[in-house]
Amino acid sequence: MELLVASSVGVLTAAGIYMVLRLRTFPVIVGTALLSYAVNVFLFASGRLAVNQPPILRDGVSAYTDPLPQALVLTAIVISFGMTAVVVIVALGAYLSSRDDHVNDRPDRPIRQDHQDRQDHHGGGEGAQP
C-alpha cells in the first residue's frame, strides 16, 4: 500500500511539473491542480497510513490514525480551491484583455496565425515580422 501511495504522489508530481512547464495558461492551471493533489496526499501521508482507523473516538477502540495531518490537509484542500480560482481569473483576465493566453512574456515572439484579430488591433506593423 505504501508503494502505491508513494508512486501516486510521484506520478502526480511528475505530471504536474510537466503541465506547469507548458506554454499556455490552461495546462499550467491543470498542472498546479495536479501538484495540489500531490502535495495534499504528501502531507496526509506524513501521518503514516492506516486502514479502518478513522480518528473518530469510539468506546473500546484504542488505535486511531494520526488526526493532525488530516486537519491540516482539509483546510489545504479548501484553500487550494481558492488559489485555483484566483489563478483562473488572472489567466482569464489576461486572455480577455490581450487575446493571448501565453504564460511567458516574450515580446520577440512572432505573431501567431490564430491571433489574427490581434493584428487588426495593432495595424499592419506587426504583420511585417517573420
Binding site: 508513494a6 504522489v9 510521484g10 511528475a14 511539473i17 500531490a38 504528501f42 501521508a45
Partner: peptide, 9 residues
C-alpha cells in the same frame, strides 16, 4: 522530480 517526490514519500 516525480521520482524524487515518490522516493521521499
Amino acid at each position: 522530480v516525480g521520482l524524487g517526490a515518490g522516493a521521499l514519500v
